[in-house]
Design a protein around this nucleic acid. Structure first.
Lengths: 131, 131
DNA sequence: TAAAAACCTATTGACATAGTGGGTTAATCG
DNA sequence: CGATTAACCCACTATGTCAATAGGTTTTTA
């Protein structure tokens, strides 16, 4: 399951892309349009800024804007920033994870195959595809 | 993320398939071979029985055995039984879930597409593929 | 009747999720 | 300069799920 944070983040990015008029868009407007808690979106927007996906501006006339054009964003990077990882199992999500069954594990190849499928899907999917 | 229950369930099914000699296989043996807690596997095995994927037999000489040949099991049904759903979002997981943005939701088609991809992948993957 | 096994009920500690609350700082406009 | 508007920051919390563990009861066979 993708968490609300990941799903809301996509909607925030999308909302900004759709309402882009060159100026900054305040969270208040996004929250209203998307019918989401402004307070919760603050957390999400902050992380999107920290990850370089959005640019934030304080003060009157401030808000958020995209740092690139919508076709330059993959859904994968948005989701990975919010979710941490999209890998289906710890063995693949955490590089440092030690499992002494790794070499003989009979399910790992399937998880790896699935992992590739997921990453490939969301990597090909651009923000502009949802506009 | 697939939970340990889902992952262990596949390993239990696989272990039984691999060690099938016509008789029932006790959980004790599976737990030892797979290096998993027998107590925890009890919960998993019980659900697999309830779901019709395994047949359990109490008493001495008892244990578990498959109800079909390994090629007749999809990984999808094992995972869905343990996880409840594999759908990435509530909107698709819960049929009764009401969302008034559904008709105009711009992300739903993507989730639907992803959902199809996931289900198709695990539906094509058979237990016998992992043997 | 002893052993071995599944089956059943309850509980628990740790962690993540999905927020809320209350402030501080920054920028603009009149 | 001061009011306003906005992001930014820190802490907290209720709820729920996960991953088991504990301890007992029933069933079956030898």
């Amino acid at each position: 399951m993708i968490s609300t944070k990941g799903r809301y983040a996509i909607r925030v990015m999308l909302d900004i892309a759709q309402n882009d008029d060159g100026s900054y868009i305040p969270l208040k407007d996004i929250a209203e349009r998307q019918d989401l808690s402004k307070k919760y979106l603050e957390i999400i927007a902050k992380e999107l800024v920290a990850g370089g996906l959005l640019i934030g501006a304080s003060g009157k006339g401030g808000g958020y804007r995209l740092s690139r054009t919508p076709d330059k964003y993959t859904i994968l990077e948005i989701l990975e920033l919010m979710e941490g990882t999209l890998s289906p199992v710890v063995c693949l999500a955490d590089k440092k994870y030690k499992c002494n069954r790794r070499k003989k594990c009979e399910t790992l190849p399937m998880w790896q195959e699935f992992d590739n499928l997921v990453h490939d899907f969301f990597n090909r999917k651009k923000l502009s595809d949802l506009l």
